[in-house]
Simulated assay, not measured.
Amino acid sequence: MRDRKQAALQRLARVEGQVRGIGRMIEEDRYCIDIINQVMAIRSALSQVEILILQDHADNCVEDAISSSDPEEQRRKFQELIEVFEKICR
């Protein structure tokens, strides 16, 4: 968990820098395709953060619900996963 948290924080710090860089690129009237490429890189980096957090959720929250023997909690955690995947697929 700690490794994933650190990795997610590092990626987000990188994304933060990239977003500021895009702002400078726009202010400097840089080539549109170069800006778009940077936006796509940010989108990819955020997807990796999503994956890290989802893995952590599965390894902790979902696993705890399965171990709890509480059918309502198990259903709730499963439904959360379904809703996340639905949003990702849009």
Rank of each mutant, 00 (worst) to 15 (best):
M1F: 09
R2S: 09
R2G: 12
D3L: 02
Q6K: 14
Q6G: 03
A7R: 06
L9E: 08
L9I: 04
L12F: 02
A13K: 14
A13H: 06
A13M: 09
A13R: 14
R14L: 00
R14Y: 01
R14K: 09
R14I: 05
V15L: 02
E16V: 07
E16W: 04
G17F: 01
G17H: 02
Q18L: 01
Q18G: 05
V19T: 03
V19D: 02
G21Y: 06
G23H: 02
R24C: 01
R24I: 03
M25K: 00
M25F: 01
E27A: 08
Y31P: 03
I33M: 11
I35G: 02
I35N: 07
I36G: 12
N37T: 11
N37V: 08
Q38F: 05
Q38T: 08
V39P: 06
M40I: 12
M40P: 09
A41W: 01
A41F: 02
R43V: 10
S44L: 00
S44K: 01
S44F: 15
S44R: 09
S44G: 13
A45R: 01
A45C: 04
L46D: 10
L46P: 06
S47M: 14
S47Q: 13
Q48T: 04
Q48K: 12
Q48C: 11
V49R: 05
V49C: 01
I51N: 12
I53N: 06
I53M: 11
L54G: 04
L54Y: 00
Q55E: 10
H57A: 04
H57W: 07
A58P: 09
D59C: 13
C61V: 04
C61G: 08
C61P: 07
V62R: 03
V62G: 01
D64Y: 05
A65P: 08
A65S: 05
I66H: 06
S67A: 15
S67Y: 15
S69Y: 11
S69M: 12
S69P: 03
S69F: 12
D70R: 00
D70K: 08
D70E: 10
D70I: 04
P71G: 11
E72S: 15
R75A: 14
R76K: 10
K77F: 08
K77H: 15
K77A: 00
F78M: 15
F78W: 15
F78R: 14
Q79W: 14
E80Y: 09
L81S: 07
L81A: 03
L81T: 06
L81M: 11
E83Y: 11
E83I: 13
E83N: 14
E83Q: 11
F85K: 09
F85L: 12
E86Y: 13
K87N: 15
K87T: 03
I88F: 14
I88P: 00
C89W: 14
R90G: 14
